[in-house]
Design a protein around this nucleic acid. Structure first.
Lengths: 164, 164
DNA sequence: GTCAAATACGAAGCATGCTTCGTAATTCAA
DNA sequence: TTGAATTACGAAGCATGCTTCGTATTTGAC
């Protein structure tokens, strides 16, 4: 048997440390970013996802929910839930489209636009802090590699391009 | 004003493309990994988190829920929920500790240990595939950088060390 | 024009993930 | 030894994220 000698207990596979598994490390990175973001922007009651949505809306001016979902690479129904919460706080308007009554045209309210401006600085700092343990050069490499992975794994309905 | 000229509509900040924000890219990476993992291991009805838990249990042999939560850097109550679901499928045993009736000692059942062995190959392939768009050398760099970031942002109650 | 396909939503259900609050059991210091 | 801190859980609540199924509306092929 090429198996390493059994450990206390039974014979098992040689364990693959969690701390070396890409999926585990990615989950941790996400966890770390969310924590840093909340620390920086929690006072504004905005989550990373909501910041993404507000940003996308600022670019689109107006868009239906499916389009927004594609913009931020998020499931449609999840996007709807997030938009509802933003609408409940009067940061977003969700009016039924008169020209296509299936759709809901979303748009930033003045309050939403104002909030976006207010949190912009803190949000960007949080994003940068996430990679703060890497050198400037490494950060650029890291981002480039992430972009390459994302490009190689298109979401089912990626509109993409909009933000590039 | 150093601001770029205003776009159709109003004056806003120069938008920072989502596709360049570390937090957004990390969320996408997580999304991609989960999708790849489901594709590879969905037939076994196992999620990435459940795989982490089963792995941690295989190493620990026996552990209370709080210890497991620290092992996989996950919130305690979330861990409890996942363990309950595994227990409901008879993959994990959650017996009240006779020596400390506050705690529940968890342990892999034979079915759980067998399942872990069965999915090990597919799970590892899914983890590797997540970075599949990078060269071998880049993958090693990428993992090393993620580890550095994780090391620089300890979870509140990191037991860590166990898997290193 | 009409009817099937496509589209945009909504509802429901499950699995993460987090926080806060409450409870039961254990520990440890005075 | 007794009573306050600590510890391990559980429950509840909110926010993601996903899938599947159903409904309303529009489009487009014929």
């Amino acid at each position: 048997m090429r198996q390493a000698k059994t450990r206390r207990g039974g014979s098992r596979h040689r364990p693959w440390p969690l701390s070396q598994r890409p999926g585990y490390l990615i989950r941790r990175l996400h966890q770390i970013h969310v924590a840093l973001f909340q620390e920086a922007c929690g006072a504004f009651e905005v989550t990373p996802l909501q910041y993404s949505l507000l940003s996308a809306l600022a670019v689109r001016e107006t868009a239906d929910q499916t389009t927004l979902a594609a913009d931020i690479a998020l499931d449609r129904t999840t996007t709807t839930g997030a938009l509802k919460r933003l609408a409940a706080r009067n940061l977003v308007e969700r009016a039924v489209n008169k020209d296509d009554r299936r759709a809901r045209l979303c748009r930033l309210t003045p309050a939403g636009a104002a909030l976006l401006v207010k949190i912009e600085g803190a949000a960007r700092r949080a994003h940068r802090a996430t990679l703060g343990d890497l050198s400037e050069r490494e950060q650029a490499q890291f981002i480039e590699m992430m972009q390459r992975i994302v490009a190689g794994n298109p979401s089912r309905d990626s509109a993409a391009a909009l933000f590039d």
